[in-house]
Design a protein around this nucleic acid. Sequence first.
RNA 1: GGCGGCGUGGCCGAGCGGUUAGGCAGGGGCCUGCAAAGCCCUCCACUCCGGUUCGAAUCCGGACGCCGCCUCCA
Length: 462
Amino acid sequence: MIRLFDSLKSEVRPLDLREPGKVSMYVCGPTVYGLPHMGHGRFTLVWDVLRRWLTFQGYEVNFVSNITDIDDKIINLAAAQGTSEVVVASQYEQEWWKAMAKIGVAHPTSSPHATEYVPQMVALIEELVAKDIAYPLSDGMYFDTSRVADYGALAGQPLDSLRAGARVETMEEKRSPLDFALWKKAKPGEPTWPASFGDGRPGWHTECVVMSLGLLGEDFDLHCGGLDLKFPHHENERAQSIAAGHPFARHWAHNGFVMVEGEKMSKSLGNFTSLTDLLERTDARAYRLLVLRSHYRSPIEVSPATIEDAERALERLDSLARRFGLDQLAGDTFVTTSHLPTGASAGELAQSVTEFLEDDLNTPLAVAALFEAVSQANGLADEGRAVEAQPLAEAINTLFGALGLTLNSHGGEIDAESAEIVRLRDEARAAKNWAEADRLRDSLVKLGWIVEDSSSGTVIRR
RNA sequence: GGCGGCGUGGCCGAGCGGUUAGGCAGGGGCCUGCAAAGCCCUCCACUCCGGUUCGAAUCCGGACGCCGCCUCCA
């Protein structure tokens, strides 16, 4: 079984499943009030890779990731645009799924919306009220953090030191600056839902609790998200669930940030690149490869240079796919071990990749092993040892596919005119008419083709 | 102020005491009519100062620099 760093226990430990063979995982999704940015791209890719890898290994993965469709920012944006929250949320949710499809992130098993779970949130808050853990203030219901013995466990510090570090005192009335809003009382013109403790709308943290427990059940296996959600968001989710008497996630995993020139990319700093923009101008696979080449807990530097670097590396993989006529895997389908070819070299490669990934999802080492295998397969083929090279190339394809990276063996549709030039060039080459052959190659290049000679003649691709 | 992390070759990025990951870029060679692709070889490292050790990028101490969380954030 894979070993992962558990943010709660601060150690790498085997993923301890509630039920053998089945993985229940929850990934905190986006609040839909803007285009997805590179940070969103990273977390979705990282957890998509884990999901695909577990599926590859034969686990049945129940992957839940929410859409937060009600929140202050959505309300503010709707007001600014003179439209409704529903319109804003659905518009950006569409953008979200478009980007996800493009980047090859498989759709979650379930993608619940916060607004579909309001009654459950109300019920949870009622449980907390009954236990005297929630208390009312003028503007809503608050959670009393002092009532949870190990509050601060995820943050890695005791409650007292967190309180001492509180930088801003937003609500003087709160018993502790760390106490957070479970429910916000209705304000004129804002969306509102009925509740026994006063109509209003939910605070942020409660939704993930009821959606994860509702779809995965108590004591589910793994809760994932960006490092910036660890505290306070995840701490507050955990606190609520446990305080209400519901065992929560068995394991917590957090991915590192996307950095721009050494600083965390974030909306508040304004230094973000939208994922939508990136996907319009580059091969979506380049970002996945970039993410795979660094460890999921490390920060990654994203810049035009690092993206181009990944695009070039991708070229090498695509060359392999063309040379060996590899099938295009991944995409919407999940690759499984049944896709692996038989044979010793394929088995050895799969085994070393597996060992690396099982050690806290060490994708950089796995990718390095795969690239080494690429050299090996090409070398064998150069020596004419196709029987050995072919299964190795197929194993590389399968294992990249298991990580969601599709190798592209198609050079593009060849139109009739280009095909005719290719035919003429092969004739010229057969006649050793090099000047004509070079002239025809130039015209192909002008048409946008990359021209390569092979044993079977001129091969062109885009 | 509290807590946590980081400083690796031209760039990205692994590494967890002994083996100069891997990719991209650069140089040389092989292959090719010439190219391209591919293969082989190669240049270029571990912020600094002490210490532990037969041996340290890796462990310990210190210095400097950087980053994150403690506030909405993936």
